[in-house]
Design a protein around this nucleic acid. Structure first.
Lengths: 207, 207, 207, 207
DNA sequence: CATGAATGAGAATTCATTCAT
DNA sequence: AATGAATGAATTCTCATTCAT
């Protein structure tokens, strides 16, 4: 097994994946063209098929890769502190993923929101590691009396990531005008734990 | 000028609109084919173009019609009671729209979540009447000390509908397994006002 | 036979014919649409087919009508004087036709110039009456020694109308800038009889 | 990058261009179908679009190519002799173009005669080189007293090519029966310089 | 491996023509 | 007679995928 070729091969694949993510994020799966992706990656059309079986397979890989990259960020977050602090850390990690891998994140979120029976479980599956972390934090929080028990922790975790996604959608939808990405963790965690009713804890002070 | 045609014409248009909503909801705008829509409506391909200028125009009309039908439901909701009660009524109205016009609602939500710069403002515009109602309730709630003031009421309203959409997405995404649509108003309003932290009211009173 | 209906019918037909000539002149046979023609004539699409079997048939009728109207003008021209004078009168009659029936004339000339084996004989046939007049003049001219005998008079006549058409084409082709239509008879007859060589008469001074 | 392809590609393009010229010459731009052209060239429909952006672009290229091929023939004609001899040589060169590139020539002439504001200047532009040659000959002829000065030389040149076109149209219109193409230069130059009046060399009675 | 020419299924759209009212 | 809704054949153009070099 030649060592360099394997690396070279991996690099070509990576470039195609990145280009694919960008095009699919910008144009959607249908409109993104294999030709344009290959060229953006610096290859000719035919080369694409040396690395991916089809456009759909690329799409799956983009989602997988997006999830993989996210997990790397989550790994070091949410370990310590109160439930609120740990959730803030997880949300901040997610925002960092968005900032560093915007195209991949957009593809994942857009597809998640398309709630197509074919891809929805796939995506939930991919998000599993992140969700798992959140669930762990929430369960600890429930044990500590910091989190309500009305819903299963797994549902709560889905709501949490859903609220993150809502923020991103707003952010993308109005061209970055609101919210400031740095505010997102505080906003989401505040919303998630306290709600907008007047009863709860201290909503959103400082940042 | 024929005598019945005005009505007949309207009915044909309606059938195409319904079929269009269903196909676009199921397949997305790109994948939905004019041919299939026309046939599903009981017409030949060419007939479609006697009623709509293009697939894109149909899409716009589907969204407009979806918004129109929704508004009719909202009209009678949210008039009286505490903020919580009024929000429950508004959410219930939205759920009723979903139940009665599932395809139209799916198209609107899916497109809203696709956050495409071209359609996002359009959709927000269409939702204006509903948002307006929510904003009014929230402002009254803020005046009564029942709603927090950390965010502008308009942002809060967007979060509220966003959370409704999240529920629908879950609902569609796992084939109707959860949540039960009848629970959605309570879930969303509870989440929106109280959050999942342990501080607030008693989370889930059953129904 | 009801008298008025017959007249009404004739009038409807006439309006469709005029509208047809204009649209075909402007857009060409392919691009001209039956729908647009009918509407321009003040009728609905279907009515067109009460008067013409098809768009192609309309086209034939437009050509026939164009020729018919032209003949009416020629009828009174070219009767007397020298060959040159008589040709001038015929050319002037032709120019008058152009001015009064521009759409019909354009259709006829454009189609003649498309030299399609299917329509070319048809058109030549339609032009027969005009050509006949010219041939008569030319034959008299040949007898009088005013016209050369190198070619059959029929060929000469075709050249003569061809040269008229060339002038019209220039006229239409550059938006009416040149030649002035009033100059056309003098230009064409001068060209036809004298050529541009230096031998002959004095080309073209004033008019 | 393949080794031969440059040549192969050029050849494919050429075949499509030829087929396009033939179909457009026979059927006109509207009626000619991309599908039929591709098949006539020995390719599948889609291949056409690897070489041309649209049918309209092909059309433009056919005209350009027609002009290009013509210019090559003109290059060596009309250099020496009397005005009559030089015009004969130019006309002969044009006839040779017609014979060798009949389809291209037909397209150019048909389109020129359709006097459409969009293409007319284009075509006149393409003919520029040929017209320039004629103008040069005519100007020399005027200086030598062999050509009349009634019209600008540029107009005279247009008349000259117009008369050539008239001959071709007759030729095509009646299936090649008349005139014999070899006679065309003599016919056209005779007509152009001397006209059909009886004066011949010197016989022009003025008016 | 890379390339890019060739392919052909598919999609949108147009429009002449028919025909029931 | 007039109407205009319905039709479907035809056309242009796109693009994922294959494959010979």
């Amino acid at each position: 097994m030649p060592r360099i070729p394997a690396a070279a091969r991996e690099q070509a694949r990576r470039r195609l994946l990145e280009a694919g993510a960008e095009h699919i994020a910008r144009d959607g799966l249908e409109r993104a063209s294999v030709d344009a992706i290959a060229i953006a990656a610096g290859y000719a059309k035919g080369t694409f098929y040396n690395y991916f079986e089809s456009k759909e397979q690329l799409f799956g890989e983009v989602i997988a890769e997006g999830a993989r990259r996210a997990v790397a960020h989550y790994a070091r977050a949410g370990e310590r502190g109160t439930t609120r602090q740990r959730l803030l850390a997880l949300a901040a990690a997610d925002v960092r993923v968005l900032q560093e891998e915007e195209a991949f994140t957009q593809v994942v979120i857009r597809e998640a929101m398309a709630f197509r029976a074919e891809t929805y479980p796939l995506i939930v599956g991919r998000l599993e590691p992140f969700l798992g972390k959140i669930v762990a934090v929430l369960k600890a929080g429930r044990a500590a009396g910091e989190v309500r028990r009305g819903l299963p922790a797994e549902r709560q975790a889905l709501l949490f990531v859903g609220m993150l996604a809502l923020m991103y959608i707003q952010y993308w939808g109005n061209g970055g005008a609101w919210p400031d990405l740095d505010d997102v963790p505080r906003l989401v965690v505040g919303m998630f734990l306290d709600g907008q009713g007047a009863g709860g804890g201290g909503g959103g002070r400082r940042r």
